[in-house]
């Protein structure tokens, strides 16, 4: 077994992510003084050829993304993909601002970057704790990008994709969390997860 294709491994990763999201949920709620609920959906492994199709089924042509790269025992990048039509709504809800337009300005970019950072930090910290991997991180990045470009510039052949529901008051936003791992790292992660499962 060299690939993460078994249901129990996905299930273990899902549980780890859920722990990380609880941590992120706590940080976010404390920060914006609003009750926030984060729920992880199923995680799947998809080929890069299907990435465009998969994302296009959920989102419009363009998306906002917050990414964080890491290296160490495993190397790769984590992305939070926000649907552009609801990004501004989410920011306004979190910051209790009045919506005047949908345009992303420096304030909103900063906010969504921080929200993405908290989500990704929660997840990655939980993975580190659960698997004991040692990682070093690069700085965060925010970008608005088309699904087509995102699919073309992704170098990895396979990636992990999971849905994340963010609920703030009556607002519910569905975002995608994507993990793109270098080939060896995916095998390594698979091993670490399998090991953790048996231990």
């Amino acid at each position: 077994m060299t690939e993460m294709t078994q249901t129990n491994q996905f299930s273990r990763l899902h549980s780890i992510c859920q722990v990380g999201l609880k941590q992120a949920e706590s940080v976010l709620s404390g920060m914006v003084t609003q009750a926030i609920t984060l729920t992880a959906g199923d995680i799947s492994l998809i080929e890069v050829e299907r990435l465009q199709e998969t994302l296009s089924n959920r989102y419009a042509e363009n998306i906002s993304q917050v990414s964080m790269s890491f290296e160490g025992d495993v190397a790769g990048s984590l992305f939070v993909l926000f649907p552009p039509e609801t990004t501004t709504v989410l920011i306004n809800t979190l910051t209790k601002s009045v919506m005047r337009n949908y345009e992303m300005d420096v304030f909103r970019i900063g906010t969504i970057t921080e929200v993405g950072n908290i989500l990704l930090s929660g997840v990655i910290a939980a993975v580190v704790t659960a698997t004991g991997v040692s990682l070093s991180y690069s700085t965060l990045d925010y970008d608005e990008i088309s699904i087509l470009v995102l699919s073309k510039q992704t170098r990895e052949q396979r990636m992990l994709l999971g849905e994340l529901m963010i609920q703030v008051e009556s607002l519910e936003v569905s975002v995608m969390v994507m993990g793109a791992f270098e080939s060896e790292s995916l095998v390594q992660l698979n091993k670490l997860l399998a090991k953790g499962e048996t231990s």
Binding site: V27, V32, T111, E114, S121, V128, L140
Partner: peptide, 22 residues
């Protein structure tokens, strides 16, 4: 809201990012 995240960094966690609105 600051301390928790700064502490996370000091424990070799991922970087923290503080935005202008939040």
């Amino acid at each position: 809201k600051y301390k928790l995240r700064i502490d996370q960094v000091l424990q070799q966690g991922p970087p923290a990012f503080f935005s202008m609105l939040l």
